Measured scan of single mutants.
Amino acid sequence: MLYRITVRNADGEKLEIVVEMSEDEVRALAEELRKAGYEVRVEPIPEGEEP
């Protein structure tokens, strides 16, 4: 499935990426980023919607 991941650092800089991963993989990635001090938001992209 496609997911949009938005990551912000302490300075407020934002990075937005689209990935194709399983829900478990995305959850693990988000958890690791949060542990590293980043603010993370994950949104699933519905099938048929443009990323």
Rank of each mutant, 00 (worst) to 15 (best):
V40N: 00
V42N: 00
E49R: 10
V26N: 00
G48D: 06
A10H: 14
P46T: 14
V18G: 01
V42T: 04
R41Q: 14
G48W: 12
E31S: 13
A10V: 07
R34P: 00
G48Q: 15
Y38C: 03
I17F: 07
V18E: 05
P46I: 15
G48P: 10
P51E: 08
L29K: 03
E13S: 11
E20G: 05
Y3T: 03
A30E: 05
R34L: 05
I45C: 05
L15K: 14
I5N: 00
A10Q: 11
N9T: 10
M1Q: 14
R27V: 08
R4E: 02
L2R: 13
G37R: 01
E43F: 07
E39G: 04
R34W: 04
A28E: 05
G12N: 05
M1E: 06
V26K: 00
I45F: 08
V26P: 00
D24M: 12
V26T: 03
S22H: 08
R8S: 10
A10S: 10
I17S: 03
V42H: 02
N9P: 03
E43I: 10
R41V: 05
L33H: 02
G37W: 10
E23F: 08
E49L: 15
K35F: 06
E43A: 10
E39H: 13
Y38E: 01
R8D: 04
E16F: 14
M21F: 04
I5D: 00
V19R: 05
A10F: 07
I45Y: 12
V40H: 00
E49W: 09
G37S: 02
S22T: 13
T6S: 05
L15V: 10
M1D: 05
E39V: 09
K14W: 12
D24N: 07
R41A: 15
D11F: 06
G12F: 04
T6D: 02
G37E: 01
G12Q: 03
E31W: 10
E43T: 11
Y3V: 06
V40A: 02
R8Q: 13
V42A: 02
P51G: 09
A36K: 15
T6E: 06
R4C: 03
K35R: 09
K14L: 13
Y3H: 08
Y38P: 00
I5K: 00
R27S: 08
K14M: 11
L29A: 03
R4M: 06
V40C: 02
V19D: 01
D24A: 07
I45G: 03
D11G: 14
V40T: 02
E39L: 07
E47I: 13
N9F: 13
E13G: 12
K35P: 00
N9H: 11
M21N: 02
A28V: 13
V7F: 14
E47F: 13
V18P: 01
V40P: 02
R8W: 11
V42C: 04
R8V: 12
P46H: 09
E23L: 07
D11C: 07
L15W: 07
P46V: 12
I5M: 04
L33V: 02
Y38S: 03
E25M: 11
I5A: 00
I45S: 05
E13Y: 15
T6C: 04
V42Q: 01
V42W: 14
L2M: 14
V18D: 04
Y3F: 11
E32A: 10
K35E: 03
R8N: 05
P46Y: 11
V19Y: 02
A30P: 00
V42E: 00
P51K: 07
Y38N: 05
L33M: 07
R34H: 04
E47H: 15
G37F: 05
A10W: 08
G12P: 01
V26D: 00
E43W: 06
L2V: 07
N9W: 09
G48V: 15
N9G: 10
R8T: 12
E43Q: 09
V19A: 05
L15T: 11
L33A: 02
R27H: 12
I5P: 00
E13W: 14
M21Q: 02
I45K: 04
E31Y: 05
G48R: 15
E13M: 14
E49V: 12
A36P: 04
R41M: 09
P51S: 13
S22P: 05
L33E: 00
E31D: 06
V7T: 06
R8F: 12
V26G: 01
E32D: 08
E39P: 01
E25P: 01
E39Q: 08
R41N: 15
I45D: 05
Y3C: 02
R41Y: 09
V7N: 00
E16R: 06
E39F: 08
R34N: 04
V7C: 03
L2E: 04
N9A: 12
G48C: 03
E16A: 09
G48A: 12
L33Q: 01
V42P: 00
A36F: 10
R27D: 05
P44T: 12
A28L: 13
Y3P: 01
Y3D: 01
P44Y: 07
R4N: 02
L29D: 00
E49A: 11
E20V: 14
E49H: 12
E20I: 10
K14E: 14
E47Y: 12
A30T: 07
V40I: 06
P51R: 05
E13I: 15
R41K: 13
P46F: 10
E31T: 11
E49K: 13
I45W: 10
Y38L: 08
E16K: 05
R4S: 03
E39N: 11
S22Q: 10
S22N: 07
K35Q: 08
E50L: 11
E32S: 12
E20L: 14
R8M: 15
V7A: 13
E43K: 04
A28Q: 12
E31K: 07
R34D: 02
E31V: 13
P51L: 01
E49P: 13
G12S: 03
V42F: 14
T6N: 04
L33G: 01
P46E: 09
V18R: 05
P51M: 01
E32C: 15
K14Q: 12
L2H: 12
Y38G: 02
G37I: 00
E50F: 12
P51Y: 00
E16G: 04
E23A: 12
E32I: 15
R4T: 03
D11R: 12
V18S: 03
A30I: 06
M1P: 11
V40L: 02
R41W: 06
M1K: 08
E43L: 10
R4Q: 05
L15Y: 15
G48K: 14
Y38R: 02
P46L: 15
K14P: 09
R27G: 09
E43C: 12
R8I: 10
E25K: 07
V40M: 01
E25C: 03
A30F: 04
R27F: 14
E50C: 10
V19L: 06
A10R: 08
I45T: 04
R34Q: 09
S22R: 07
I17R: 04
L29N: 01
V18M: 08
V19C: 04
E13R: 14
A36G: 13
E13D: 09
G12R: 04
D24C: 04
V19P: 00
R34T: 08
E49Y: 14
E16D: 06
G12T: 02
E43S: 12
A36R: 15
R41I: 07
V40G: 01
K14F: 11
A36I: 06
M21D: 01
T6I: 08
A28K: 09
G48H: 13
